[in-house]
Design a protein around this nucleic acid. Structure first.
Lengths: 329, 329
DNA sequence: TGCTTTAGAGGAACCGGTTCTGTTGATTAG
DNA sequence: CTAATCAACAGAACCGGTTCCTCTAAAGCA
């Protein structure tokens, strides 16, 4: 590897001069030209490690995601990437594969890497998570879940659930099937559902059947195949767009028509909902903006500025073809 | 920040002792206990930079992707992530947003970061790319495209195209519409198409109309809306699954039935093709395996082992519901 | 008991940069 | 003409680790 010493030696100057050349200036035109040429020739690039070591600043931000193949995660990531670059930071992305052990590991790894802050896509949050995070002393920002004493940025999941509930009731539906996800994910598994339930329950004669899937399409598809024939629901609420796409597919494969036999909706606002037939009604979340906000907020945290503990992102009901009036009342 | 010096001072030992404690051993049980306690108390984590600086080894691998919201990229990334972790490396992911300038920038950034090797998802490859890469002196591996003098791992795109061509001819189709992507992406834009054309052209009376989209669904959807009504084709070949999903949607919106009015196929084997109706015939690519292979190959390159210049991954025709015999001959 | 071996620890050098201090020769002000 | 100023550069210290060399005291051996 070519180092600053090699450059200095070859140019016949002190390495401090080369360093000055690389940074602020105060180098004569003559020396400048000499160094220029040698760097060009050798293809020298300064070692960022050595730099960071002295500067006590790594300019790196860590991101921890639960899995790589999630549309929502990737949209947030795009936002993070954009803002990160804009603010002059470098991203280190680690994947935990939805595995708690690997999350702990990754928190450690990022700490060793001396990233200046970490954005973590939270799923299930155990006390051990909170503990590990606090021990690092590194600024942390959770995305998607809130936790005592740690800054976070979340969706208004309860409100999103309520929007769907209210909308479905307005359409005249009274019998619902809720395809949910495990409660370990509080935001999606509990709050989103609760918002829906609270909007629907007060209405006379309403019923809600519940089944639980995970976040994968295969699981939702299987559950739907088994459950659709025996439900009395006229409206199927899916906890995510992915689940909705899978349930739609299952319904079609069983010979049902959407929205004639069932109305159907998801949450998220993924592109996929617009490229199936019928297009799926959903609540659209501002993923990209969330990524932008997350980085801005983290950077303020790094700079030890005052930042509100919890930020919430809004969302918006998007009515598509998969939902219709229940006119057989 | 807590450093090894702080630990040493507090324990009343030399920092070399603490270092030995952290690494190989040769520390008395007594001292070990003392240091143990202090590290626990202070939450000390060794600074990887300082370590790398001395060790001349960063244990980092850089990955450069063109965009974050691509299903195929993410599947390859999963494979990369898995193998990377297995072999004890740390991933730095940079996104170039399909922008050449940013690719050059990122190559520089990764070089400064002193990653031990880089896996780059190649799109358009200009001489400047090759040049920039070679100048870094860092081991590089291209995914998806080959380039003179740089190692790469690619799909058998020509063969994949030929598979679709042969299959469509067997079904009795003679008139084709090829929805392609720009030729700047040689693998997808040229070779995949050429494989198809070479399989189809020799057949008597066959015709191929061509339109060009980009990799986005919106673009493909718009083009299809305009073009489907006037084509004489009975089989639509889409250069990617994403395009196929969009064309399917457009066809439905125009009132066509698939495969009754048109047969339709894609390339890639994304999950999405299985969750639309009808399911889409495609060629399935081993993305995850490609990621695994890529890291293995790169690590061999880093270790200066002999590695074949180009590795090819196979692929497999997956027949689904979107293609049918053309029986009106 | 005396000599050799070895475990455990300290000290210094080193990795590749940045930055502070000091020196020198030329330029400018008085 | 002398004193003050300044640009340009050299040299040394430092960042937080690792590692090599050296020293000492205890253990092993004859």
């Amino acid at each position: 590897m070519v180092t600053i010493n090699d450059i200095a030696k070859e140019a016949g100057v002190a390495k401090s001069t080369v360093s000055r050349y690389l940074n602020n200036g105060s180098v004569s035109a003559d020396t400048r030209r000499k160094i220029d040429k040698i760097i060009e020739k050798t293809g020298y690039t300064p070692n960022n490690f050595a730099r960071s070591l002295k500067a006590q600043k790594t300019n790196m931000i860590g991101v921890m995601i639960p899995r790589l193949n999630s549309a929502s995660t990737n949209e947030v990531l795009e936002g993070i990437d954009e803002m990160t670059r804009k603010l002059g930071y470098q991203l280190i992305i680690t994947n935990s594969d939805q595995n708690n052990e690997r999350e702990f590991e990754n928190i450690q790894t990022l700490a060793k890497q001396k990233v200046e802050g970490v954005i973590m896509f939270a799923r299930e949050l155990t006390p051990e998570h909170i503990d590990t995070v606090k021990k690092t002393g590194t600024p942390f920002l959770f995305i998607g879940q809130k936790a005592e004493g740690i800054h976070s940025i979340i969706h208004q999941d309860y409100q999103a659930g309520a929007k769907i509930g209210t909308y479905a009731i307005e359409l005249g539906h009274r019998h619902f099937l809720y395809v949910g996800v495990p409660e370990k994910d509080r935001a999606v598994g509990v709050e989103r559902r609760q918002g829906f339930l609270d909007a629907v329950r007060p209405v006379n004669g309403s019923t809600v059947e519940k089944i639980e899937s995970d976040f994968s399409r295969t699981s939702a598809y299987q559950k739907a195949l088994a459950f659709l024939p025996k439900t009395e629901a006229t409206y199927i609420v899916c906890a995510t767009d992915n689940i909705a796409v899978a349930v739609l597919k299952a319904a079609k494969d069983l010979g049902y028509s959407i929205p004639e036999d069932f109305s159907l909706s998801g949450f998220g606002g993924y592109e996929a909902t617009a490229y199936v037939s019928p297009t799926i009604t959903t609540v659209s979340y501002p993923y990209r903006e969330m990524g932008l906000e997350a980085v801005k907020k983290l950077v303020r945290l790094i700079g030890k500025e005052e930042v509100p503990n919890i930020s919430e992102m809004g969302n918006e009901l998007v009515i598509n073809q998969s939902t219709a009036y229940f006119d057989k009342i």
